[in-house]
């Protein structure tokens, strides 16, 4: 069997997804045996900048023209493009205040010299290119990544959960952070896949994986308001990881 050619790319981000891939310590050597890594500059030198790839994994958000240029080049040379991590899938933390002009940020951070730096509002990959599969998470969950790789090696796209973190939390029989502990928990509207990690540590869900399809955001906001949270606190949390998601943007417009 010909080994699939793989590229692992990082746009702007914390490298969390690439680190999670390297964190598959027990499986890494076997995976390396089954694939042909052509591009992974975080882990190796002498990368192939041109060859056609069977699968490109791309992490990070697009925050500057350079990112957009690289992303379009990756799309051209790849049969499958997979967005990994919340930045690539939703825009992530850097996209939380796209309503503020970048020039303002550049000046605040770099002073007058900031004018020479190029910056655009942070956006997910799908705003620029066709994305074949999205694996969200900040960071991605190792198990989900490994399952995806196993499916891809068999020529299939993996089946990812389509329900909320809340469901996983109930299955684990954790104490409900929202109803039981009155915490600002986004479990009911956040896409599952983490096994309700945070509630397992008595920490409410911050929504780091982004919203689940058809999330009932209005109802979540209503419950939180009834519990005494201010609209400002609620909106801040909703904005943290996936502010650009349409389902959340609709909510912000209502307010």
């Amino acid at each position: 069997m010909v080994k699939p050619k793989i590229g692992i790319f990082g746009l702007t981000g914390c490298a969390g997804e690439q680190i999670m891939i390297l964190n598959c310590e027990d499986q890494l050597i076997d995976i390396l045996g089954a694939i042909d890594i052509r591009y992974f500059p975080t882990a190796m030198t002498k990368n192939d900048e041109e060859c056609e790839l069977d699968i490109a994994f791309v992490e990070g958000a697009v925050v500057q023209p350079k990112d957009e240029e690289l992303l379009k080049k990756i799309r051209q040379r790849s049969k499958l493009l997979i967005a990994i991590g919340t930045c690539a899938v939703w825009g992530g933390l850097p996209a939380m205040r796209n309503d503020v002009p970048r020039e303002e940020f550049l000046e605040k951070v770099y002073g007058t010299k900031g004018k020479s730096f190029k910056s655009i509002p942070a956006q997910p990959l799908k705003n620029f290119v066709k994305v074949d599969l999205s694996i969200s998470g900040c960071p991605i969950e190792k198990e989900q990544f490994l399952k995806a790789v196993a499916s891809l090696l068999h020529g299939d796209l993996p089946l990812l959960p389509s329900y909320a973190v809340c469901t996983e939390c109930k299955m684990n029989e954790y104490v409900c952070m929202l109803v039981g502990e009155n915490k600002l928990c986004l479990g009911p509207i956040t896409i599952a896949g983490c096994g309700a990690r945070c509630p397992g540590y008595n920490i409410p869900c911050h929504g780091c994986r982004g919203p689940v399809d058809e999330a009932n955001v209005a109802s979540e906001v209503k419950i939180l308001k009834e519990k005494g949270f201010t609209l400002r606190d609620i909106e801040n949390r909703l904005r943290s990881f996936a502010a650009q998601a349409e389902i959340l943007q609709e909510q912000f417009k209502k307010e």
Partner: peptide
Amino acid sequence: GSRFFEPLIIGRHYDEIPPILSRICAI
């Protein structure tokens, strides 16, 4: 690219700061 962490978090409640700033870097 610049992610502008500091201006993004101005005005945020104190308990939101550590999980956001942890994202500066994965390692």
